[in-house]
Design a protein around this nucleic acid. Structure first.
Length: 110
DNA sequence: GCTGTGACTCCTT
DNA sequence: AAAGGAGCCACAG
């Protein structure tokens, strides 16, 4: 069965992103149990022909769209995000920082 | 089978 | 805060 295919797991994680929210490439890869394969996630999204795949909800770790700013693909993703209710500030997705730092994970909040 | 490339990420200046 | 460089993995030539 193809249930163990890492590619399928990655696509499943992308489909699981709720409307109005975004996730980073690395975050998606980690959720799929494949840490460090952020680039693979990007390649999968490009290779996937599933129109129902919410690829536009996947952004870089900075909260920025991965396409060159101003490009057609960039505007397409920005448009879809806006349709999802995601606010864009200066080409940057309104994300609460880059998730959290490792120090905060280990040491906890001051 | 080695080299180059990219919808990435992290650390150091 | 912004810029540069190294590390990373899958795929095409």
């Amino acid at each position: 069965m193809a249930a163990g295919d890492p590619a399928d797991r990655i696509l499943a994680v992308v489909r699981a992103i709720p409307r109005g929210e975004v996730a980073g490439y690395g975050e998606v890869a980690r959720r799929a149990g494949l840490p460090g394969r952020a680039r693979w996630v990007a390649r999968l999204l490009a290779a996937s022909d599933d129109p129902a795949l919410p690829w536009h909800r996947v952004v870089r770790s900075d909260g920025r769209i991965a396409f060159p700013a101003g490009s057609e693909a960039w505007r397409e993703q920005a448009r879809r995000l806006g349709a999802d209710g995601v606010r864009l500030a200066g080409g940057r997705v309104r994300v609460a920082r880059t998730e959290h730092s490792l120090d905060a994970e280990v040491w906890g909040p001051a």
